[in-house]
Structure formats: C-alpha cells, structure tokens
Write a protein that binds this DNA or RNA. Structure first.
Length: 116
DNA sequence: GTGTTGACTATCG
DNA sequence: ACGATAGCCAACA
C-alpha cells in the first residue's frame, strides 16, 4: 500500500505528511559550528537506517532555503558532493565560517560531531 | 503493487 | 588509507 499521502496537509494532523518533513525538522535542530552525518540525521528524524533518505531530501532543497543543510556530511567526515560542484564549495565555505576546521577536505567528527 | 534510484553506511580485500 | 561490494529505507514512476 503506497498511496502517497497528500504533501500539503500538515495542519490537519500532528503526523508529518512524509518522512521527508521529519528530516527538515531534525536538520533545524543542528546548532551552528557542528556537523552531523546523514545516518544520524535520519536517526534524529526517527528514521534509523534511512541515511539515503536524508541525502535525497537535501538534494531536493531549493538554493535559497534557510535550513542549514551545509552541516550535513557523510560518515567519512567529508562532504558528499562532487568536488567540482558549486554546492560543494558553498558548503565548505559555510562550515569554515561557522568555525569548523576542515583538513584536506575532511572534518573531525570527533570534535565537531553533533551528539544527542 | 512492483521495480528503480539515490547528498548513505558498514565490511572486506 | 582507498576502492569495491552488499545491505538498507523511503520516495517516485
């Protein structure tokens, strides 16, 4: 039973239309200067194991979104985007601006990782 | 309802 | 440390 729920109908029920919305909420809870992996983000959204879902959601975000999508990186501590893409550079610079140190394109999850 | 796809992750060589 | 493989979940056609 798939039957995609109506995307525009959040006020009528406390339940999110799709899990994609849960990702948005989880993303908003990430403080500046910290980073989170896709897996943790999904878990935080109540979708353990759906790391790919988190990625798909961020991929669909508009460029002018307010969400701090740049704080999301992969488990390897790296930006999961093609290095030559504009989004990659943008994410890299935003992270630096928030005080996140990036060594050789890698971020220390041990230090900047968001746990909660 | 079935099959394909993806800003992923853990394991193995 | 790095590349290849298999496993996973949800959205979309």
């Amino acid at each position: 039973m798939k039957k995609t729920l109506i995307p525009e109908h959040p006020a009528a029920s406390n339940q999110v239309a799709t899990n994609r919305e849960a990702i948005y909420l989880a993303l908003m809870s990430i403080p500046a200067g910290k980073v989170i992996t896709y897996g943790q983000l999904a878990s935080l959204a109540g979708l353990p194991g759906a790391a790919r879902l988190a990625g798909s959601v961020l991929c669909g975000l508009p460029e002018k979104t307010e969400l701090p999508w740049h704080r999301v990186i992969n488990a390897q501590g790296k930006i999961s985007l093609p290095v030559d893409s504009a989004s990659y550079k943008k994410q890299l610079q935003r992270l630096k601006a928030e005080g996140v140190e990036i060594k050789n394109g890698k971020i220390s999850l041990r230090i900047y990782g968001y746990n909660n």
